[in-house]
Structure formats: C-alpha cells, structure tokens
C-alpha cells in the first residue's frame, strides 16, 4: 500500500528497519486472523491546537504515529491525552463548541480537510473507549457485526459469520462466547465486554485503532489479556493508546509520548515522544523522567 511512499523522517525508517520485519510475515493461519497482510496507515499531526470553545486544551501538538506500532500517550489527568486522541478520528468535534486547528494526516490525507466526511474518517480510524460500551439491545453476534450492519453494508450471512468469527477470534473472545453468540452482550464480564468492543472496532477493518484507557475499568487479569491482544493487533493496525498505567505503557508500546501541563488551566503540551525504551530509561527531559519514575507532583 504505502510501501513506496517516502517516509517523512529518516529516523523513522531507521526505527522500523529492524523490528518491523517479523511483523510483515503473513499470519500463520489465514482463517484465524484476518487476511490483512500489508501495513496499516500512519498518522501525522501537524501543529494541532485543540479547543473547547475558547479554551485551548492542547497546544501545538506535532507527532508522527508510525504504522503497525503501538504508541502510548501518558501524562497526568486533564493534560489533554484523551482530547488529543479523540481529535485523531474527529470524535472531539462531537462535543458542543469543540474544534480543532491544524492538520491530521492519515497517510498524507488531511482528515480535517474541508471536503472530508468525518464518517469516512471514523470508518478508517476506529476507537475503543474507557468504559466497555457494547450495545445493550444487541446480541454478542450483532455487536460484533454492528459496524457493518448499522451502516447497512450488504453482506452475505455466511460472509458476516466469517467476519464475526474472525473478529472475535482476533479479540481472544471466540472460545468464550461461541456457544452464546445470540445472547445479549450485557451478560459478559467487564473484560469480555471490552474485548467485544475491540472485536467490534476491528470488524470493520480500520487502519488505525485508538484506545482511550481501555483497561482502566478492568482487573489485572483482564488487563493482561488486553495487552496481549494489543501486541497481536499491531500486526494489522496502527495503535494509539492512552493510559495512566506506566507499566502498561512500558510493556505494551513501541513509542511513548508524554503530555504535560504547566499548571491547571494551561493547555496541555506533548513535551516528549520517543521510543518507549528511551522514554523509560533515558528521557531527554527532566520532567519526563520525574513523571515516569513516579516523582511527579
């Protein structure tokens, strides 16, 4: 897809050269995982200023999010991580008075271009939320297929069955629910519901998956299950995850970005973003080091 595309930054190519290779291997069993073999899309934000009405919530944010990598965003509460995340698939503007200035490029296409339909953007950039939010009126099967069904995409029953099975398998949920696909999704545990939401988001085959603190409502075991899943999902998707859990960022991500605010009321700023290893071992800035080592505030 975008393999011929010239990379914007040299260092990024370097960063990808080594570890990217095993990712490019085709999945062992084509029926178990989706047949997506190529790379997902990259996101580049340029001078992003994000507002709630007149309040500037995130200031001058420029970041390159690499395809098929997990990028974690950390920082204290209220510093704009989630706001930034929601601006990446135009969910931010759903809030009254909220607006965004700047560019977000999805493989070079500005998703904030005037003729860009936010609905199409969101079909390419899926999202998983903090609280598991399966549709209560729908069964497990219908929830998984919701992206296709709600959009009235004409899909054959057998094809849909395949997509549902693939998505649930990909979300490590198939074995737990295959005997009760027609049962309401509300009967699942919190961790299962969150994995169902991930299956639902991946069923429409987006390029990018945004996760807004996907584990903060889950117990440690369910959290570990999701982290394993994230590790596998990056073979097919570009992943951006907001987390408050430093260990999670260290365990699950390839890149880590640190958001900070000077003081309450100031806009949040992405102060440092680098390879996760570097952020946690040898960050460029003192404030990053203070935060990741827990000496903050």
């Amino acid at each position: 897809m975008n393999e011929t595309e010239t990379m914007k930054e040299k260092e990024m190519v370097d960063a990808q050269a080594g570890p990217a290779d095993p990712i490019m291997d085709p999945p062992a069993s084509p029926s178990a995982t989706a047949t997506v073999d190529a790379k997902a899309k990259r996101i580049d934000a340029e001078d992003l200023n994000i507002y709630y009405g007149d309040f500037l919530a995130v200031k001058d944010c420029s970041v390159n999010i690499h395809p098929n990598k997990v990028t974690a965003l950390i920082g204290s509460s209220g510093c704009g991580k989630s706001t930034f995340l929601r601006s990446l698939n135009r969910m931010h503007e759903l809030i009254d008075g909220a607006r965004v200035e700047g560019k977000v490029l999805l493989d070079g296409t500005d998703i904030y271009a005037r003729n860009m339909d936010p609905v199409l953007v969101r079909q390419q950039i899926g999202m998983v939320f903090q609280q598991p939010n399966p549709f209560p009126t729908m069964s497990i099967y219908e929830n998984t297929a919701a992206g296709l069904r709600l959009n009235r995409k004409k899909t054959k029953k057998t094809e849909l069955d395949g997509i549902v099975e693939r998505s649930l398998t990909g979300a490590h949920l198939w074995d737990e629910v295959k005997d009760r696909l027609d049962k309401p999704a509300g009967g699942l545990s919190g961790g299962q519901q969150q994995r169902l939401c991930i299956a639902r988001a991946t069923a429409i085959e987006p390029e990018v998956l945004l996760m807004d603190e996907p584990c903060s409502a889950l117990d440690p075991i369910a959290t570990l299950a999701i982290e394993d899943l994230i590790n596998e999902l990056k073979k097919r998707f570009t992943i951006v995850i907001v987390t408050h859990n430093m260990q999670q960022a260290a365990r699950a991500s390839d890149y880590t970005g640190f958001f900070n605010i000077e003081k309450s009321g100031d806009p949040g700023v992405l102060v440092e973003i680098d390879e996760t290893e570097k952020i946690f071992s040898n960050p460029r800035l003192k404030e990053t080091e203070d935060y990741v080592s827990g000496r903050f505030g």
Binding site: L120, V121, G126, M127, N133, G147, L150, C197
Partner: peptide
C-alpha cells in the same frame, strides 16, 4: 452517550 460515541466511532452516520 457512550452508546452514541461507540456508534460514531464505528463510522456510523
């Protein structure tokens, strides 16, 4: 609202 957002995030108008 989480349900509306879930639907929007799936690219549903």
């Amino acid at each position: 609202n989480a349900l509306r957002e879930a639907s929007f995030a799936l690219g549903v108008p």
